[in-house]
Nucleic acid binder design. Structure first.
Lengths: 117, 117
DNA sequence: ATTATATTTAACCATTTGGTTAAATATACA
DNA sequence: TGTATATTTAACCAAATGGTTAAATATAAT
């Protein structure tokens, strides 16, 4: 009865540690435009290639992953836009953080810390 | 192989629309300290009480729900602290939002909009 | 003591999830 | 053309998820 919401897919995608690790790999790519091929992405994980392939599909469906096919190589890169929507949803609860002293301050600090990098 | 991470439970808890709706109900309580009893919480949902009970357990395990038992009534209230951790994890990807023009600005706006309320 | 209310637990079921191995597909290379 | 590489799909499996109804538990009220 509750209509489909893209947040479902975003939060679900982020709930798995392997997928979060994949996102971290993608974010640490020094040439973000290029993207990582699937095999390289899979290397750090003690898991079969098809397993990683499935995880990538989940990230893809959540809109967190962009594939740019280049011959037989699939170059994967990050699109963090859905995370932004997730963070915006969470931000509605800011009032409840305020009660926990220092949390909000810390949060804003996190968000402005790299402003001048 | 990947060690347990509380973010797993937080993101998983947030991935279900019913649970997000429950959190919204909790957040809209005018007397947050009092908390909502389970039956009242369940009323808006086209779902059995045990189903809601299970959802509450998921939220509880994720640390998003605080129960204060008062006789046979369980008063539920929100603890948004784990959301804060989730948002902090997401914040690490801020650099990837910047590419999408306006997103970061909008985000910071969201977070400072109610500063003067 | 009985009955009603609030909530959870138990048992069950269908679907999804996260993994596997084996096979298929598509491209590159010799 | 044949072979190696990159990746997905298929088929399978165990465990988790999200729901149900029926029963159990705990408290309150009469």
């Amino acid at each position: 009865m509750v209509k489909y919401n893209p947040l479902d897919a975003t939060f679900a995608a982020l709930s798995d540690p392997t997928r979060r690790a994949i996102l971290e790999c993608l974010s640490q790519e020094n040439v973000p435009a290029a993207g990582l091929m699937v095999t390289s992405l899979a290397k750090p994980f003690d898991m079969s290639l098809p397993a990683i392939s499935k995880h990538l599909k989940v990230l893809d469906k959540a809109g967190l992953l962009v594939r740019k096919r280049d011959g037989r190589i699939h170059r994967c890169s990050l699109d963090a836009a859905p995370m932004w929507e997730a963070a915006r949803w969470i931000s509605e609860y800011r009032n409840y953080w305020e009660n926990q002293l220092g949390s909000l301050a810390g949060f804003l600090e996190t968000f402005s810390a790299r402003e001048e990098e």
